[in-house]
Structures are given as structure tokens and as C-alpha cells.
């Protein structure tokens, strides 16, 4: 793999994530779902100023454990 291709790979991944042309039930779809669920469940509600949810969230709990 050339250096040019290695550098352009992340840009290509971002482009495909933004300009979405994949069908459902593909590995790309699974990856996107995983990223979304990680954001929804890991982000502490306080960071988003969630009016209905409180607590540190999974990311906050992990941060506390690492401290």
C-alpha cells in the first residue's frame, strides 16, 4: 500500500460515511449503527444538557474508574 493511499484512506472513509450509498444489512451499515449507539449510550447526558436524563453515562463512569 502506497503512502498516498494510506493517507487518503481516512478521507475516503469520512466521504463514504457522509455521502452514504450503502444498503441496510451491510458491514458498513453495522459500523455506522455501532458508532451511533456508542455516541447515544456513552456520551454523558450532562455534556449535551439533556433536559430529561442525568448521571454520568457510561463514558463518565469509565472516566471515574480511571481516575
Amino acid at each position: 500500500m502506497t503512502l498516498k493511499r494510506l493517507v487518503s484512506l481516512p478521507a475516503l472513509a469520512v466521504w463514504h460515511a457522509l455521502f452514504w450509498t450503502f444498503e441496510r444489512a451491510t458491514w458498513q451499515y453495522d459500523l455506522m449503527v455501532l458508532a451511533i449507539l456508542a455516541f447515544v449510550w456513552l456520551t454523558p447526558p450532562g455534556w449535551l444538557g439533556d433536559p430529561m436524563a442525568g448521571g454520568p453515562g457510561l463514558l463518565g463512569i469509565l472516566a471515574d474508574l480511571l481516575r
Partner: peptide, 17 residues
């Protein structure tokens, strides 16, 4: 996503997504 937000009380994050 709305259902996930409702069942797990993470509606703000779901709205952003």
C-alpha cells in the same frame, strides 16, 4: 432511534444524531 432514546432515556443524544 426514537425508540432507543425513549427506552433508555437518551432522547437528547438521539435528537442530535
Amino acid at each position: 432511534l426514537f425508540m432507543i432514546g425513549a427506552f433508555t432515556n437518551r432522547m437528547a443524544a438521539v435528537l442530535w444524531v
